[in-house]
């Protein structure tokens, strides 16, 4: 039997088919490009920040597999409206989750649907698919106005 449910959970497939916040934001405050040279997956990420640095809007245009698209969609929901400090907690938390380094007191709450991607940690060849959007978000939030990241 070909049981891939720990990878392609229903929530993941739903985000893949109906990605939330899938849009380009013209003249966004921050933009970043993410690229996975292993498979060619690409994501362009756009952020608008309010005066306090919180993410008032987020959009992305992505070409990639179900995992990377779902991760982008889930991430966009997890950080929209959040302060940049909270967004960084999402970024760090998601990385801990996938590297199985999340401790007992780990705050799953802040990750929202992203938590379901914990199953990807059993598929080492697919971890980069899941982390591409989050790396790109980290780049967008860093000091640089426009960044480009690569998973390699």
């Amino acid at each position: 039997m070909n049981d891939l449910r720990d990878l392609y959970a229903e929530v993941v497939m739903d985000h893949n088919r109906r990605p939330r916040n899938f849009k380009r934001i013209e003249g966004a405050d921050r933009e970043a490009e993410g690229f996975n040279p292993l498979c060619g997956d690409q994501i362009s990420l756009y952020l608008n920040l309010d005066d306090g640095g919180a993410i008032s809007d987020i959009g992305y245009v992505a070409a990639g597999c179900a995992i990377s698209k779902a991760a982008a969609s889930m991430m966009s929901e997890a950080v929209k409206g959040r302060s940049s400090a909270d967004a960084r907690k999402v970024i760090d938390g998601f990385r801990l989750l996938l590297t199985r380094k999340a401790g007992d007191d780990f705050d799953y709450e802040i990750l929202g649907d992203l938590e379901i991607l914990e199953g990807v940690s059993s598929y080492p060849t697919r971890i980069k698919c899941a982390t591409l959007p989050i790396h790109t978000l980290a780049s967008a939030l860093s000091e640089k106005k426009n960044g480009a990241v690569s998973t390699e």
Binding site: N2, D3, L4, L7, Y8, L38, C39, G40, D41, G64, C65, A66, I67, Y123, T125, R126, C129
Partner: peptide, 22 residues
Amino acid sequence: IVHPHDLGTFLDRDGIAVRTGH
């Protein structure tokens, strides 16, 4: 319908090794 990477993982679980990517 299915991205090559997702297909590659699916086939792998059936014991079938193919390459997916560029």
